[in-house]
Computed example of a mutant assay.
Amino acid sequence: MSLAFDPTSAYDAAFSGKATQVVGDSGGHEPFEVGVWSSDPDWIDHALFIDPCDGATLDVGCGPGRLVGEIARRDVPAMGIDVSIEAVRQTRFRGADALLGDIFLEIPDEGEWKYALLADGNLGIGGDPSRLLARLREVLSPDGVVIAEVAEHGAGLVREERQLLVEGRLSVAFDWAVVGLDAIEAVAAEGGMRVIGTSSVGGRHTATMIPISP
């Protein structure tokens, strides 16, 4: 096996179509669903993420842009953000704005976004979901909304290190987290957010959150 390489380069390789798996703390492997994320959005994507967004929307960890691309086609102001050059390139190819960068750094129009999306497990970015939600409080308008995909009830809160295995090359480990329906209220509260509803469609689950008033 080749020497490890940085996760951003691994994401670029994965989004360019190279066979990729996610390796967890226990050594278990699961597929990195590039084909799903690169396809057109399905009815579940519409129900959970696309249809609710009627104002300026930020898609955090947008990947190849299937969600933000569709939202932009509805003439709703929208932008994706991702650390992968290839993901941003593909999102822009779909006709949507996309920023190459880190959500924890300054982004355009801070404090003005109406919606922030955390689809496909992206609530786990950085390994600290409460910190991520606290950051989104700064990004959103005072009446803003976070729509985050969560795991099934009973999954709890799991923090772990993950790696990407791309055609025999293993990336450097990075922090990730998984939040279940049973843990999201506590995680949200720690991040200064309040869960106002959950949805389950086609075996996928989301929590809708708003900032807690000072």
Rank of each mutant, 00 (worst) to 15 (best):
A151R: 12
G65S: 02
G197S: 02
V23G: 13
E152G: 05
A4F: 05
E152P: 00
D25V: 09
H205Q: 12
A173R: 12
S130F: 07
A119T: 14
H29S: 14
V68K: 13
F93C: 02
R74M: 03
Y11C: 07
W37K: 14
A183M: 06
T57F: 10
K18P: 02
W43H: 10
L136Q: 09
A87C: 03
E70V: 10
A72G: 08
R169Y: 01
K18H: 07
V146E: 07
D51V: 06
L105Y: 15
A183H: 03
I81H: 05
H205Y: 12
E110W: 05
I44K: 13
V195T: 08
L117A: 06
V166M: 04
I196Q: 15
L133K: 02
L100F: 07
N122G: 08
I212T: 13
G35F: 10
V36F: 08
D102A: 07
I196K: 14
E149W: 09
A96F: 03
A13E: 12
M1Q: 15
D42T: 04
A14I: 11
I196W: 13
A10V: 03
A148K: 00
G65K: 08
P41L: 03
A183N: 04
G27F: 08
H153W: 11
V23K: 14
I107Q: 04
A116L: 04
I85S: 13
P64G: 00
A155E: 13
L136V: 00
R204G: 01
P214D: 14
A96Q: 02
Y11S: 10
G95T: 06
D128R: 14
D175I: 01
F49E: 00
L140E: 03
S130I: 11
G61M: 05
R162N: 11
A189F: 02
S38R: 13
I196P: 13
S2I: 04
S39F: 06
V60A: 00
